[in-house]
């Protein structure tokens, strides 16, 4: 079975709408793994999920599996405006990281109540079920989804989706350089097993190398480190994700050039994630 995915948001940190970001988009992280019209598999609930929600209702999708990498606002702020949760005919299964002391449900309810939002979660008409991760692999429709904790401030997951014929790794917020990439065996690299040999790796590349020094420990990667990580785990193709909000379309293209330069000719050239991009892995 081929994996088919659509990017609904790939901006990092905060939405960045405007004429400078029209090509690559200003919505924050949200990726749909396309399953058909009856069910949906969604990675993260950044502002990109708002338009996806409208589309899912149009398609008549009634069962949605939402996997959250972490609960930083740019990955959950679209959830409150995700139209399917306001439809009583919808079942939403939410999977995401518990903290060392709180389950996912308790953590999400904090963002879904006053003063951050006018309504309480009990006002949501859809049937919503929460599941803590990491746990054993989730399986449905020929896809196995694995999760593991990765290096980013607070409990944060990366995901790996496997079918018989293709593998996708999704690590939108990740700073593996903080504990080392070069000279480390894969098992000692944060996210190493998740991304090992992936056909497509969606990975954080928020910073240019010259910006990274001032932002070490913020939880994001430079484009140089994203390429180094991709090589270390032997991913076939890197997709640069979680774009810096101040980076214009033109500046992003320079970042892509830098990634291609670093990658060399022995691998598929990295590419920029773009809102609306559809990728099919055969």
């Amino acid at each position: 079975m081929a994996l088919r995915l659509k990017i609904w948001g790939c901006r990092g940190s905060v939405p960045a709408p405007g004429p400078q970001t029209v090509t690559h988009g200003g919505n924050t992280s949200c990726v749909e793994v396309m399953l058909g019209d009856e069910e949906a598999l969604v990675l993260d609930a950044g502002t990109g999920i708002r338009a996806l929600g409208v589309d899912l209702l149009r398609r008549g999708t009634r069962r949605i599996h939402l996997f959250l990498t972490h609960l930083h606002l740019d990955h959950v702020e679209g959830l409150r405006f995700f139209a399917p949760i306001w439809d009583e005919g919808v079942t939403l299964e939410v999977w995401g990281p518990r903290s060392p002391v709180l389950g996912l449900r308790e953590r999400i309810l904090r963002a879904f109540s006053p003063p951050l939002f006018p309504l309480d979660f009990r006002d949501v008409p859809a049937r919503v079920v929460f599941h803590d991760l990491p746990a054993g692999p989730w399986q449905a429709d020929g896809i196995s989804l694995f999760s593991d904790l990765v290096l980013h401030p607070g409990p944060t997951l990366g995901f790996r989706l496997e079918t018989g014929s293709s593998t996708l790794a999704y690590l939108p917020d990740h700073e593996p350089a903080l504990t080392g990439i070069a000279g480390r065996s894969t098992d000692w690299i944060s996210g190493g097993a998740l991304a090992a040999g992936a056909d497509l790796l969606l990975h954080d590349a928020q910073f240019l190398d010259e910006e990274y020094d001032a932002k070490i420990g913020w939880g994001h990667s430079s484009v140089d480190d994203a390429v180094a990580f991709s090589r270390a785990v032997d991913a076939r193709r890197l997709v640069l994700f979680h774009h810096e909000p101040d980076r214009s379309d033109q500046a992003l293209e320079s970042l892509e050039d830098r990634a291609r330069e670093l990658t060399g000719d022995d691998r598929l050239p990295p590419m920029l994630a773009r809102e609306g991009m559809v990728v099919e892995l055969n």
Binding site: L151, T179, D187, W188, A193, L194, A196
Partner: peptide, 16 residues
């Protein structure tokens, strides 16, 4: 996915 070989993030951080 080879979950057996991957070091837990807490161990990676402890090593660092």
């Amino acid at each position: 996915m080879d979950t057996q070989r991957q070091k837990h993030l807490v161990l990676i951080l402890a090593r660092e």
